[in-house]
Design a protein around this nucleic acid. Structure first.
Lengths: 145, 145
DNA sequence: TAATACCTTACTAAATTTGTCAAGTATTTT
DNA sequence: AAAATACTTGACAAATTTAGTAAGGTATTA
C-alpha cells in the first residue's frame, strides 16, 4: 500500500549525489549512475525532468555534469518527488486536476485530505541538507487530529 | 504520487455502510453497492477479504448481510487498508518481506521509514467511529522530525 | 576535431490495478 | 420441499501504470 515509485526514489538519491558537489563541482551522470546503481539511460530521463523543474542545472562538455540550482537547505524532498511524480494525490477526489464527482463519497474525503496534507507537510520540511547531515529523522508516531 | 487503490477506498466506504448497521442490523451487499456506487461483483471480492481479515462477519439467507466484528471505535482505517492492500511499504527496503540489499542506499532509508511510520500512525488512530461521527480531521501541517 | 557529456523522443515489456464472470453453497420463508 | 435471497469462491482479462531501453542528436572544451 502507498508505494513510492522507483523514479522518485532514484531521483532523491541522484539529488543527494549532486548535492555532494555543491556549490562548485558538477557531478557527471555516469558517476551518479555508478554510485547509486541506476542505469545511465534511466537517470537521463529523471535528471532531465528535474532540470525542467528548476532544481538542477547542467554543464556540458568534458568535466561537465549537474549542479544544484539552490543550496541543499532550500531543496526539499517534497519538491523532488513532486517534480517527478506530481503532487500527492491519494484519491481521484484529492487530485488538483479532476474535481470530486460524488457528493456522498465525501464521508472519507476529509480523511484523505488530512492524510495527504500530513504527508506533504513532512516531505516539504525535509531537505537535501538533512540527508547530507545524516539527520536522525524522528519516527515517533504521529498524533492524529 | 502515493495513490491509494480503489480497492482500499471502496473498502473503507463499504465498512462505513456496514458500521451504520452496528450492532444488530446486517447490511446487504446490494445495499452497499447502491449507496456507494460500486459493482456487487467487486464488492464481493473486497468484503470476502475483509471477512477473512476478521473485521466483519456475514449472515446468510434472506434478511442477511454483513456485520462489524467489533465496535466502530475498535476498527481503525489502518486495519481496513492493511487487510486489503497490505502494510504501508513505501519502498522495497521498507517491505517486511524483502530485506534491504543496498548498504549505501540507506541514506534515504531512515527517511522513508520515518514517513511510513507517520502514515501508519495516522491511519491506526482513525476509526470507523470517527467517520460515523463526521469528525473534523485535523489537517494542520505536520511538524517534521 | 575528437572526445566528453548532456538532451530528446519513442517505444516496449512487465507488473499492477480494476474489475467481470460463472458457478457454486448456505439459509430462511412460504 | 422448493424457491428466493444472499453470501462464497476462483478464474480470468482489459486497462493502466511503471520501469525501464534504445537510438540518435546537440553542445562544449581540450
Amino acid at each position: 500500500m502507498l508505494k513510492l515509485s522507483t523514479k522518485g526514489q532514484y531521483g532523491v538519491r541522484a539529488m543527494f549525489e549532486i548535492a555532494r558537489g555543491y556549490p562548485e563541482h558538477p557531478v557527471a551522470i555516469r558517476e551518479i549512475a555508478e554510485r547509486q546503481d541506476v542505469s545511465v539511460a534511466y537517470l537521463e530521463q529523471i535528471l532531465n525532468t528535474l532540470r525542467k523543474a528548476g532544481l538542477i542545472t547542467s554543464v556540458r562538455g568534458p568535466g561537465g555534469g549537474y549542479l544544484l540550482s539552490r543550496s541543499p537547505r532550500e531543496i526539499s524532498i517534497g519538491e523532488i518527488l513532486r517534480g517527478l511524480d506530481g503532487p500527492v494525490a491519494l484519491t481521484a477526489c484529492q487530485d488538483p486536476l479532476a474535481g470530486c464527482v460524488r457528493a456522498d463519497g465525501c464521508v472519507t474525503s476529509l480523511l484523505w485530505k488530512a492524510l495527504g496534507e500530513k504527508i506533504e507537510g513532512f516531505l516539504d520540511q525535509m531537505t537535501l541538507h538533512d540527508l547530507l547531515a545524516g539527520k536522525k529523522f524522528g519516527s515517533e508516531r504521529a498524533v492524529g487530529a
